[in-house]
Amino acid sequence: MQAALRYQHWRDLLIELIARDLKVRYQRSFIGIGWSLMKPLMQLAVFSLVFGLILPLNIEHYTTFVFAGVLIWSWFSGAVGAGTNAISSSKELVRRPGFPVMLLPLLTVLGHGVHFVLALPLVIICAMIDVGLPGAPLLALPVMVLLQLLLTVGLVYFLSAAHVFMRDTEHLVALALTVAFYVTPVFYRPIQKTHDLSYLNTWNPMAWVLEGYRAILVYGEWPSLVTMGKILAFGMVTLAASLWWFARVSPRFDEEL
C-alpha cells in the first residue's frame, strides 16, 4: 500500500516536472517543440551535403543512416549534458522535505527522451522512403530505446552526483561529449575491425547502441542479441554502481548546494 502510493506519487512528479520543462521551453515560441528537431535536421543537412556529395563516404542509405545517428546522439548528449546539472540546479527541490532527489537525474533523461521519441516517426518515415518498410524488426525499436535509456541514466546518476561535489564535472563532460561525438560512428560507418583504432568503436557502448538502431532502420534486420546483451550488461553494471554511490552521497547534497 505504502509502496504503491509512493510509486504513484513518483509517477505524478515525473509527469508534472517533465511537462513543466517542456512547457517552459516551448510554450511561448512559434514552432514550439519543433525547435528540438532543428539541430538534428541541420546536422542531417550538413552531413548529407559534406559526406554525401563533397567527400562521398559511399554509405548506402546515407540519409537514414546519418539521421538516425544524429537523433540518437542528440538524445544521449543532451541528456548527459543537462543531466550533469540535474542536482546542482535544483537546490530548492533537494532541500525540500520529502522530495525524492533520486528522481532528478531520471527526470532530465526522460525529458530529453520525449523529444527523441517524438522524432522517431520521422526517422521511420525517412527509412520507409529511403530504404523501404523495415518490417517486423521495427518491434525491436522500443527495446533499443529502453536500452539507451538504461545506459544514459546510469551515466547521468554518476555525473550529476559528482558535479555536486566537484563543479568542474560540467566542463569535463562538455569536453568529453565533443570528443565522443567524433570517436563514435555517428556520421561515418564503424571503423574496420582490422584498423589500429577499431577499439574506439568496439569498446564504445554508444557505438553498440547505434549499431542496434541501424540494424532495424537502415538494414531492416533484427539487432544482434550480442549487441543488445552487451548494452544491457554494461548499462546494468553502470546503473547499479552509480545508484549505489548516489544513494551513499545524496544525504550530503543539501550541505554542498
Binding site: 504513484q8 513543466r20 512547457k23
Partner: peptide, 19 residues
C-alpha cells in the same frame, strides 16, 4: 511562465500530493 493552475499542480506534487 506557467499559469496559476499549472503551478498549483506542480507545487502540489512537489509537496507530496497525488494529481
Amino acid at each position: 511562465d506557467l499559469t496559476g493552475r499549472e503551478n498549483l499542480f506542480l507545487l502540489g506534487v512537489i509537496s507530496g500530493m497525488l494529481r
